[in-house]
Amino acid sequence: MRLVIALPYLWLVVFFLLPLGLVLGLSLATNAPDLAPPVELGLSFASFKLLFTDDLYLAAWLSSLRIAATSTLVCLLLGYPMAYAIARATPPRRPLLLMLVILPFWTSFLIRVYAWMGLLAENGILNQFLRWSGLMSDPGTILGTEWAIHLGIVYAYLPFMVLPLYTALEKLDWSLLEAASDLGARPLPAFLTVTLPLSLPGIVAGCLLVFIPAVGEFVIPDLLGGTRTLMIGKVLWDEFFTNSDWPLASAVAICLLILLVGPILLFQRQQQRSLERT
């Protein structure tokens, strides 16, 4: 019995705290390219200092946050009606609709991103269609722009938005909406004063599930995006692989973690409060 209780903690220590400690230790080390591994352990804050003084990193942070935030917003705007429609569908239909949302996960993530490359390239399927149909003779190229990154992130993470929203909306007692309408609320105010606040936990969970991985996203901007878009995931990759600077790469990783712990704690507190309520 004790073993069963200890297991999750053991898991946490071995697969979370230990690696985290390692990365933290690395972030405080000094870069030493002539060593293997290329670090000199110590207590140096040089990597962090560089991270906060060089405006290139700041720009990378800002553009990562901006892209993650807009993608999250688009996911929310697309995902909410989807989740709402699924939650209001007849119970026998819901599993089918949910399945359709989850279905893309059955294909490898990488293959799906490559498929988008095929769609969005200069001579890709989309442009071929536009030219063939005569809608646009010179459609330009979406691949390699920030549009493509947004598209990729929204496409890849939409299910992470829909599922928690669905869970929240499915629990919603629809007679509350009837009550609101009965008390004189038009559909929009009824939505804003009843549905929205009651689905807030789902909104927060969905946004975090999309926002957090989107900030550190590497594959999508690398494959779909242009070189003009700087994202922190790419910076981390560059520091680790191209510059072989493990301390700086670790410092980026630690900052990413700290940045994202804030919203998670906020979410937890909100969850706690809603638990106390009921």
Binding site: E178, A179, A180, D182, L183, G184, A185, A190
Partner: peptide
């Protein structure tokens, strides 16, 4: 419903 001069008490009460 929101324009009717009628109010309803729900069986489940439907309190917010």
């Amino acid at each position: 419903p929101h324009l009717r001069p009628v109010n309803m008490m729900f069986q489940s009460y439907a309190l917010f």
